[in-house]
Simulated assay, not measured.
Amino acid sequence: MLPMADELAPVLVLAAHPDWRQSRVNRRLRDAVLDLPGVGVRDLYELYPDFDIDAEAERTAAAQARLIVLLHPLQWYSMPPLQKLWLDQVLAYNWAYGPRGHALQGKDLWLVATTGGPEDSYHPQGYNRYFFDAFLPPYEQTAALCGMRFLPPLVLHGARRAPEAEVQAHVATFRQRLATHPRWPEIEDLAAQPACVVPEPDRPQP
């Protein structure tokens, strides 16, 4: 059982892995930041094994954070099902987006992902047929819809076979980035993301 996450933490890590026992890298990423001041780790599969998400508790945590991290393995070119359900149930209209949905505006969203296939498999001549960036638009647009800034992802390809030294360096980078956000050289020039305007007729209320 993980220690209770700090719901008021300025950095919120949403860790999602359907079977942590089978995780070589994501588990180490999760565990490496449990003791970092100002970082709250919410293990979605531990909190919600029945998939019954407490949306209000999750909104409380998300509203207090300046950085929200999606930590998970890539599964079928997307996120694990409970992570997707979190988005579906927590990012409500007129809370996360829409005319009165400003709760996340101005925050940062960071994808930290691992893939089973090596980097060269994400290539027009590889078996995944596309460069990895081709699978990022759903993440980027989720951020844009909520007025969040989408940060350059941190990805470890071929996680099952990556050399131990590479895994250690990757985990160290993740911890260092969380400890120093938002003082990252590569995001100094990234502009804030204005929220996408969703007209009322496009999202009628029940």
Results as ranks from 00 to 15, higher is better:
Ala9Val: 10
Ala9Ile: 10
Ala9Trp: 11
Val11Arg: 14
Val11Ala: 10
Leu12Asn: 04
Leu12Phe: 09
Val13Gln: 04
Leu14His: 07
Ala15Phe: 13
Ala16Asn: 11
His17Ser: 05
Asp19Ser: 12
Trp20Ile: 09
Arg21Phe: 05
Gln22Pro: 04
Ser23Ile: 00
Arg24Val: 09
Arg24Ile: 09
Arg24Leu: 11
Val25Lys: 03
Arg27Met: 11
Arg27Trp: 07
Arg27Pro: 09
Val33Thr: 10
Asp35Arg: 14
Leu36Ile: 13
Leu36Trp: 09
Pro37Thr: 08
Pro37Gln: 08
Pro37Asn: 06
Gly38Ser: 01
Gly38Glu: 01
Gly38Tyr: 02
Val39Pro: 15
Val39Met: 12
Gly40Asp: 15
Leu44Tyr: 14
Tyr45Met: 09
Tyr45Arg: 11
Glu46Lys: 14
Glu46Ile: 12
Glu46Leu: 15
Tyr48Trp: 11
Pro49Thr: 09
Asp50His: 15
Asp52Cys: 14
Asp52Asn: 14
Ala55Lys: 14
Glu58Val: 10
Arg59Gly: 08
Thr60Asn: 08
Ala61Trp: 04
Ala62Trp: 00
Ala62His: 04
Ala63Thr: 08
Ala63Tyr: 01
Gln64Val: 03
Gln64Pro: 05
Ala65Pro: 01
Ala65His: 01
Leu67Cys: 04
Val69Phe: 10
Val69Ser: 10
Val69Met: 09
His72Thr: 06
Leu74Ser: 00
Gln75Tyr: 11
Gln75Gly: 08
Gln75Ala: 02
Trp76Lys: 10
Tyr77Thr: 05
Ser78Leu: 01
Met79Gln: 06
Gln83Phe: 10
Gln83Asp: 10
Gln83Tyr: 12
Trp86Gln: 05
Trp86Asp: 01
Asp88Gly: 14
Leu91Glu: 07
Ala92Leu: 13
Tyr93Met: 07
Tyr93Arg: 09
Ala96Cys: 09
Ala96Thr: 05
Ala96His: 06
Tyr97His: 13
Pro99Leu: 05
Pro99Ala: 10
Pro99Tyr: 07
Gly101Ser: 00
Gly101Met: 01
His102Gly: 09
His102Ala: 04
Ala103Gly: 02
Leu104Ser: 02
Leu104His: 00
Gln105Ile: 00
Gln105Tyr: 00
Gln105Glu: 06
Gln105Asn: 00
Lys107Leu: 04
Lys107Asp: 05
Asp108Leu: 05
Asp108His: 09
Asp108Glu: 06
Trp110Ser: 07
Leu111Gly: 00
Leu111Asn: 00
Val112Gln: 05
Val112Cys: 02
Ala113His: 01
Ala113Leu: 08
Thr114Phe: 02
Thr115Arg: 00
Gly116Ser: 02
Pro118Cys: 03
Asp120Thr: 12
Ser121Leu: 12
Pro124Glu: 02
Pro124His: 03
Gln125Asn: 07
Gln125Tyr: 01
Gln125Leu: 10
Gln125Asp: 12
Asn128Phe: 13
Arg129Ala: 15
Arg129Gln: 14
